[in-house]
């Protein structure tokens, strides 16, 4: 079809569009001509009002839905091929843990699908439990955990087979503010430990600015990229949220979003 993307790029969208119910009266242009490239090891946040197609863009990157036009490359391969090669892990707004599996067995689910042996699986799940600091809870069932703990299990599951990319769809959207901030710090620690590239969909401005090196602002109907804001706050810590530069970036993102919402 065309040339592949350079390998130093984790995810690349080239003039990607997504049209639902094409040619029918209820046709919706969810994404229009998106160009975006995420470098390896980068942390990119997608933000925008609901209906701007940020979740759709994430699913295009995951190869879960095909692009109507244009191309998506993940690790230099077509998105669908990258999905088959298990190049990325995914986390959703609901932790989507399987009720009937213990925490350990939830983390081992993708490994089972990959055909790993029992020994390999339990070795890796122990590592992952350690990474998300839930080693004491391996035998618990998901409904015995708090929302924040469930989301940590979901992240451990997404990373269990060491994918080079993590795709996250508002993973902390359902958590309370305190837990949320705790989880953000936790995610950054994991990101630094594992050198994984992250694409993170959110509708929280402070969350996007706190986490990401780059914030992509999107507009709805049709979904487009309207701003690409670099965030250079250095290593995040307790002080970051009180840093004037943090507020400046929040204001910058907010203004970009406000420009979107004018009819």
């Amino acid at each position: 079809m065309s040339t592949s993307a350079p390998v130093s790029v984790a995810v690349e969208a080239r003039a990607a569009s997504k049209i639902f119910s094409r040619g029918k009266p209820n046709q919706v242009v969810a994404l229009e001509s998106i160009n975006l490239s995420v470098r390896q090891g980068g942390f990119v946040a997608l933000i925008g009002p609901s209906g701007c197609g940020k979740s759709t863009l994430l699913r295009l990157m995951a190869g879960l839905v095909p692009a109507t036009e244009g191309e998506i490359f993940v690790n230099g391969k077509a998105a669908d091929q990258a999905r088959r090669d298990r190049d990325y892990g995914m986390a959703f707004q609901s932790a989507s843990l399987f009720d009937w599996r213990t925490v350990t067995r939830n983390i081992e689910l993708p490994l089972e699908l990959l055909g790993w042996s029992k020994d390999q699986r339990s070795k890796r799940s122990a590592e992952m439990l350690d990474l998300v600091q839930l080693s004491d809870f391996g035998d618990h069932y998901p409904n015995q955990l708090s929302g924040g703990m469930q989301q940590r299990v979901a992240i451990a599951r997404a990373l269990s087979f060491k994918p080079s990319i993590l795709l996250m769809d508002e993973p902390f959207g359902a958590l309370d503010e305190m837990t949320r901030e705790h989880m953000q710090a936790e995610l950054l620690r994991i990101w630094e430990d594992t050198q994984t590239s992250v694409v993170f969909v959110t509708h929280s401005i402070p969350e996007a600015v706190f986490l990401a090196q780059r914030v992509i602002v999107m507009s709805p109907r049709p979904g487009r990229i309207v701003a690409d804001i670099d965030v250079d706050l250095g290593p995040r810590g307790f002080g970051t949220r009180e840093d004037p530069e943090f507020f400046n970036k929040i204001t910058e993102v907010r203004e970009a979003l406000r420009a979107v919402e004018v009819p």
């Binding site: 699913r59 995951a62 879960l64 999905r83 088959r84 298990r86 990325y88 892990g89 995914m90 959703f92 707004q93 609901s94 989507s96 399987f98 689910l109 993708p110 699908l113 990959l114 795709l167």
Partner: peptide, 14 residues
């Protein structure tokens, strides 16, 4: 199963 659970399995190319 929720749409997200199905997508999760799809993301593993199950």
């Amino acid at each position: 199963p929720s749409a997200e659970s199905i997508e999760l399995m799809d993301s593993y190319a199950a």
